[in-house]
């Protein structure tokens, strides 16, 4: 169970973007969060992934309150999430080859040895060929880079996936491929999903439950 309890968050204490919002996601459930741009849904997604400290409220992860946010969260809690962001260009370290980009979480958690096997297993599921894996981010397209970012999010086998406008910058076929990859992973692992976006049609087809930003605030 991933539970957000009356979260108030923002970047300026006097003007929070998110005011007193609560949300519960059951294990294995897929929740779509719909809202216009600028309403604070990305901020809420970052809070849910323990990447942004809220001004008030708590995140309860599988029954345990978050120990902190960013580096203050325990490594086990941080890596319980796989996060995919909206802009692949900004969310990829420009100096890493795609293979290193995808396996970086394994290196960071001291499981370097598993990297080649996991990479060989993951790359086909997100549709990346071996030749792409040796390239650097500036040598691939946005869609290819987003596939790599999804692979990076999946490599530690997270229990929760946070997809923040994952497909907003992509064409229809890449969108379909990425959503399929996420759904395949969820079916196999039973992970829960919070998908943030403004595309009602996509989110309603993708997620079991879709919440509008307006109804959540009340």
């Amino acid at each position: 169970m991933l539970e957000l309890r009356s979260i108030t968050a923002g970047y300026d204490r006097d003007h929070p973007v998110v005011r007193d919002v609560s949300l519960r996601i059951a294990p294995g459930e897929a929740v779509g969060l719909l809202g216009p741009s600028g309403c604070g849904k990305s901020t809420l997604a970052r809070v849910a992934a323990l990447l942004h400290r809220p001004d008030a409220g708590t995140v309860i992860l599988d029954g345990e309150p978050a120990t902190g946010y960013r580096h203050r969260a325990s490594r086990a809690q941080r890596t319980a999430y796989g996060v995919v962001f909206q802009q692949p260009r900004l969310s990829a370290d420009p100096r890493l080859r795609l293979a290193d980009l995808i396996t970086e979480p394994l290196r960071a958690t001291g499981r370097r040895a598993e990297a080649p096997a996991r990479l060989a297993e993951l790359a086909p599921t997100v549709g990346l060929s071996a030749d792409l894996l040796t390239r650097r981010p500036h040598e691939v397209s946005d869609g290819q880079l987003q596939r790599a970012c999804l692979a990076r999010a999946l490599i530690l086998r997270p229990r929760w996936l946070i997809c923040d406008e994952m497909t907003a910058m992509l064409d229809a076929s890449t969108t379909a491929a990425l959503v399929t990859a996420v759904e395949d992973y969820r079916r196999e692992s039973g992970a829960g999903l919070l998908a943030v976006g403004h595309d009602r049609v996509l989110l309603e087809r993708w997620c079991g439950r879709t919440v509008g930003w307006a109804e959540m605030a009340s």
Binding site: R46, A49, L50, L51, R70, H71, R75, R78, T79, Y81, G82, V83, F85, Q87, L90, S91, A92, D93, E104, P105, A108, T109, C149, R152, A153, L156
Partner: peptide
């Protein structure tokens, strides 16, 4: 965001 991604990846 790539720093966010690294934090989330356990770095």
């Amino acid at each position: 965001p790539y720093i966010d991604a690294a934090v989330s990846g356990g770095a």
